[in-house]
């Protein structure tokens, strides 16, 4: 029992820590690309703390208050169901009682709970943002899960542990053995991280900050916190599935950072797409690629 508690806290703490450092790095990176100095690497931590210590927070009814709690609970649950390390008893959380499809669905539980809060605020801009978010989700989820399904078919299991165990060395990484699956799911994965070309939903100034329009003070702090943790959980999931997982914390950080760098590099270079362009893009390029790889790797006898 005690083990579970320590483990859970370690996972939560680590996700938070990595989360704000990664985002801090992202802001630095972005700034350097734009030839600026950029903020300190801890800037996201400062922002987050500032919001958590605001002295005033407005709510619009009980559901509005519970929305951020649901999204936070969803994020932490996700974190706890993703195994962070391979062949270790630490940083496992409850991942033994979950699987890949469960994790993918857990990723959306929180945002949907928060959508209720946005709705109950009565701000039409927020709801507009939610609708855009759901629309984008509709676009990205299809190729994303298709990419993961290719891996599931390859290993005939939905368990993240089993898939990690099947990739002992570089030559067996799914990135190497099933590169098509990686290509299919990487862009939707970026969109699920709210990264730049696909960030029309929550981007500031775009429909007035989207779903977050009415959130202020400490509730906004909660939303920021869960976002950072969720980002790390998703990165770890992809590192587990395609980069063979990690046996040490340093390896984990290196792999997730590499993935993060990839997303950061792509998102600094491309301008934002409209919602329907995003959906259309996902249904054409990544999904088309997905169909090709299904035909190439599953339909034909040589596979």
């Amino acid at each position: 029992m005690l083990h579970y508690f320590i483990d859970a806290f370690a996972m939560i703490g680590m996700s938070y820590f990595m989360g704000f450092l990664f985002y801090g790095f992202y802001r630095q990176f972005n700034a350097r690309v734009q030839r600026r100095w950029g903020p300190s690497i801890f800037q996201n931590f400062f922002d987050n703390m500032k919001f958590l210590f605001k002295t005033e927070t407005i709510i619009h009814g009980p559901m509005f208050f519970f929305g951020p709690m649901i999204i936070f609970a969803g994020a932490v649950t996700t974190v706890l169901f993703v195994p962070y390390l391979k062949d270790s008893i630490w940083l496992q959380g409850f991942s033994q009682s979950g699987n890949m499809i469960l994790i993918v669905y857990l990723l959306v539980v929180g945002p949907l709970g928060n959508a209720l809060a946005v709705g109950s605020s009565g701000n039409p801009f927020g709801v507009m943002g939610v609708t855009r978010g759901l629309t984008r989700l509709m676009g990205l989820e299809v190729p994303f899960l298709l990419g993961l399904a290719l891996v599931m078919v390859q290993h005939e299991t939905a368990s993240v542990h089993a898939i990690m165990a099947a990739q002992p060395d570089f030559a067996h990484w799914n990135l190497v053995t099933n590169p098509l699956a990686f290509l299919v799911m990487i862009l939707p994965f970026m969109a699920s991280q709210h990264a730049s070309p696909f960030d029309v939903v929550g981007a500031p100034v775009e429909v007035y900050a989207g779903p977050r329009v009415e959130f202020s003070g400490r509730l906004l702090g909660i939303l920021m916190t869960q976002n950072m943790m969720m980002t790390v959980a998703k990165l770890v999931l992809i590192a587990d599935l395609f980069l063979g997982g990690a046996t040490t914390i340093w390896e984990l950080i290196a792999k997730t950072f590499a993935l993060f760098l990839l997303t950061a590099a792509i998102s600094t270079s491309f301008p934002r797409l409209r919602t329907e362009q995003t959906v259309d893009f996902f249904w054409k390029i990544p999904l088309g690629l997905g169909v090709i790889s299904v035909i190439a790797t599953i339909w034909f006898p040589w596979s």
């Binding site: 958590l52 210590f53 605001k54 002295t55 005033e56 927070t57 407005i58 709510i59 619009h60 009814g61 208050f65 709690m69 003070g217 400490r218 909660i222």
Partner: peptide, 11 residues
């Protein structure tokens, strides 16, 4: 959240 500092009020 309730233990934390800061006033929360309903619109």
């Amino acid at each position: 959240f309730f233990l934390g500092r800061g006033r929360m009020h309903r619109a």
